[in-house]
Simulated assay, not measured.
Amino acid sequence: MEEATESTHCCENVSDSEEDKCSDTDFPPSQLGTKEFWEDVYQKELETFKDIGDVGEIWFGEESMSRMLRWMDKAKIPENAAILDIGTGNGAFLVELARHGYRNLTGIDYSPASVELARNVLQAEDLADVTVKEMDFLNCQGELKGFDICIDKGTFDAISLNPDNREEGKKLYVQALKDALKDKGFFAITSCNWTKEQLLDRFCEGLEFVQELPTPSFQFGGKTGHSVTALIFKRVH
């Protein structure tokens, strides 16, 4: 689900306030939480790519990819690490990971048009060894296992906006994530809807907080906050 810039479709995350303690029901449901919306988005991007070779926009912008790659370098993630891109969208981050030397890459998305687009983009980059699957992360039936790193840039945000059963969807997401990760495997999430405190609360079971990655900050009304939150967790049993 990688379709927007860093500020598009996002709620600003204001930290150091009582707003950090707001419940998961504070966000109204949105079409951004529906499969139909994303299928339409990626069908249009697929047609554009076939016409002019434009891969479309990058969720959270190119800086979000650079930020993650810098962390992976500092964490000394090996090039053969099994990496899962949850909600791969147009596959742009898979391309960047491959360019960076990572060789064991898998991307999933529940949108058939997204998967076709990502495969076309990877083929154009001569990256035939990258795996892309049409799969709903919330209903993967245990098919995803043994990953050293799971990366999410916006997918959990979209699930949180689903008009139907979004609370159940968030619970299914956490369980699918724990099933997919190896013991001591890393989970890297970038969110524009949830604050650090809210994400810590949501992913406290079976995951250990490692660090927060620096993102641009802003000041408004005497408060300091971030439009984007990027956190790293580790799987623990």
Rank of each mutant, 00 (worst) to 15 (best):
D126K: 11
F60H: 00
G154P: 07
D148P: 01
C204I: 10
N165E: 11
D109Y: 07
L161A: 06
P163C: 11
E96H: 06
I108R: 02
F220N: 05
A81K: 03
T5G: 09
N13Q: 15
D179I: 07
E167H: 13
R119Y: 00
G225R: 04
I149Y: 03
I149W: 05
Q198F: 03
V115I: 11
A81T: 06
E167A: 05
L231H: 08
H9I: 02
A176D: 06
E125C: 15
K184L: 09
K145S: 11
A176V: 09
C11A: 12
E39Y: 04
L84Y: 03
A118L: 01
L117V: 00
V95I: 09
Q123K: 10
K74A: 09
F187G: 03
N139L: 10
C22R: 14
W59L: 04
F220A: 08
P28C: 08
Q141P: 00
N193Y: 05
D152R: 09
L213Y: 02
R67D: 10
Q198P: 00
I108F: 00
F233E: 10
T8N: 12
F27S: 12
A113N: 11
N193K: 12
E167N: 09
E62M: 06
E208T: 13
L231M: 12
V41D: 02
Y173P: 01
C150R: 01
Q175N: 11
L213V: 15
T8Y: 13
R235L: 02
F209Q: 09
I52A: 02
G33C: 05
T48P: 00
E12K: 13
G206L: 13
E47N: 06
G221S: 02
L161T: 00
D129N: 11
R103H: 05
K196Y: 04
P163K: 06
E63C: 00
E45F: 00
Q198V: 03
T106N: 00
S64C: 13
E116H: 05
D26I: 14
T8M: 11
P163M: 01
P78Q: 13
C10K: 13
P78H: 09
M72F: 01
T131Q: 15
I108W: 01
I189H: 00
C150D: 01
V121A: 04
D24R: 06
Q219T: 14
V210P: 10
D73H: 08
N13M: 14
D40Y: 07
F49L: 01
G33A: 08
L207G: 08
P214L: 05
F156R: 06
E3P: 00
W71R: 08
Q219C: 06
G206N: 07
R70L: 13
H100A: 15
E2T: 11
G56L: 12
E18M: 07
H226W: 09
R67M: 05
G225E: 05
F187W: 12
G185K: 02
W38T: 06
A92S: 14
D40V: 12
E167T: 07
G154C: 04
K223P: 01
H237I: 10
C10V: 10
S66H: 11
E39M: 06
I232C: 13
T34H: 02
N104T: 09
F209E: 06
E79H: 14
Q123N: 15
A158Y: 04
L213T: 08
I159T: 05
L94W: 03
C10A: 13
S64F: 08
E12V: 13
H100R: 08
G101R: 02
D201W: 12
